[in-house]
């Protein structure tokens, strides 16, 4: 009898602590949820505004988004967010969250901003696992290599020159890292081709209301 009593008391105690612990987490979650969502929204908007200045558009890019999938052209089998910038209803630019699937250490996530006429407003690396000190020169914080894409388009340079210099193209490589710049140049070129093919659809399609994750 004594043994059973002890067991029951222990079980009740353990259950009580489980309720207390979960309660604490639930309470914190409730109080931080809105703030966290707002932080994530601000992070995304800041990344978008680094490519298309706030003055260049008057819509809410964060809300004006569609999701597309094209593994061969956008480098990922996941859905890719396409943010649209508009000024007085006119299409200004699209920011495409494509990826380079074949980086030195896995996928490199990008943000590629293309103006309506097909020239690049800019490119940023959002997420990568390249070697610190070598491949991470593609981050704007480490070097301005990524700015070399500004103003380029499918016709400037032509398809043969959309490569790093070592492969006979016009884009710089980074000292000690060949693969990283090479795959990013390839991914940006493919994204531009995708944009060229689907431009009208990208701007016409109605914005999604779906829940998003990340950029």
């Amino acid at each position: 009898m004594q043994v059973l009593r002890n067991m029951i008391i222990s079980a009740i105690l353990l259950g009580l602590f489980a309720i207390l612990g979960t309660g604490l987490v639930a309470l914190t979650f409730k109080h931080t949820k809105d703030r966290i969502a707002e932080n994530e929204r601000i992070t995304i908007i800041n990344s978008l505004h680094a490519l298309i200045a706030p003055a260049e558009h008057d819509n809410d890019m964060y809300e004006d988004v569609i999701m597309v999938t094209d593994e061969t052209m956008l480098g990922t089998s996941d859905t890719v967010n396409v943010y649209r910038a508009r000024l007085k209803g006119q299409a200004v630019a699209a920011i495409i969250g494509s990826a380079a699937p074949d980086g030195y250490a896995g996928r490199i996530k990008l943000l590629v901003a293309v103006r309506h006429n097909g020239t690049l407003a800019g490119v940023r690396v959002v997420n990568h696992r390249e070697t610190p000190g070598l491949g991470d020169g593609v981050e704007l914080e480490r070097s301005d290599w990524i700015l070399g894409f500004n103003g380029k388009s499918l016709s400037n340079p032509d398809a043969k020159a959309w490569k790093v210099k070592r492969d006979g193209g016009i884009f710089d490589q980074l000292t000690g890292a060949t693969i990283t710049p090479r795959v990013i140049v390839k991914a940006v070129h493919k994204t531009l081709q995708y944009y060229g093919k689907h431009r009208d659809r990208l701007f016409k399609q109605a914005a999604t209301q779906q829940q998003r994750e990340g950029l």
Binding site: S10, G21, L24, V25, T28, T32, I36, N39
Partner: peptide, 29 residues
């Protein structure tokens, strides 16, 4: 009680860490 102390410690640690994680996500994003 001694026989349930380890699971209780684990519960406490997990709850505290999750709370800190949420708080950091909110204030030091």
């Amino acid at each position: 009680r001694p026989e349930i102390r380890i699971p209780v410690f684990v519960l406490i640690i997990a709850s505290v860490v999750t709370t800190i994680e949420l708080a950091m996500n909110a204030w030091f994003h």
